[in-house]
């Protein structure tokens, strides 16, 4: 809980959900987000993520595309089909680098599309500015 001090100073912390099936990547992202003072939860596939969102809707989700059971595209679509989650920010973080996949992701309602491996600084910057608007 090293990074928690700065986070507690805020009245309300932004909630972030990390969805990825690679435990190491989830771990890395958790560290990053906690350091920035966000409230972080994680899920390892689409279905788990969906139930987590239903429990408490996060402000932003970091979404991998290739996942078992329910993949990122499907989850993205599900979220966007619910008007209550209209303002939820979706950032796709994926190893799929082809243009066609980026277009598909954006078309399905994602707000940002970041290709793995990513720069941690850039991702943090992106998330911060996305949450400020």
């Amino acid at each position: 809980m090293i990074f928690s001090k700065r986070g507690y100073s805020r009245v309300e912390r932004n909630k972030i959900l990390i969805i990825d099936d690679e435990p190491q990547i989830v771990r890395a992202l958790e560290l990053l987000m906690q350091r920035e003072g966000f409230e972080v939860r994680s899920a390892s596939d689409g279905i788990e993520a969906l139930s987590s969102i239903e429990d408490a809707a996060p402000d932003l989700i970091l979404l991998d595309l290739m996942m078992p059971r329910m993949d990122g595209f499907e989850l993205c679509q599900k979220i966007r089909s619910n008007p209550a989650w209209k303002n939820m920010i979706i950032v796709i973080l994926t190893a799929k680098g082809r243009d066609i996949e980026r277009e598909k992701g954006m078309a399905l309602g994602a707000d940002h599309y970041v290709t793995k491996p990513f720069s941690t600084r850039e991702v943090v910057q992106l998330i911060k500015s996305a949450l400020e608007h």
Partner: peptide, 15 residues
């Protein structure tokens, strides 16, 4: 497949 371990490596190194 290559990007996945690379992502972890880069992220942890930066951290």
């Amino acid at each position: 497949e290559l990007r996945t371990p690379l992502t972890s490596i880069r992220a942890f190194s930066e951290i």
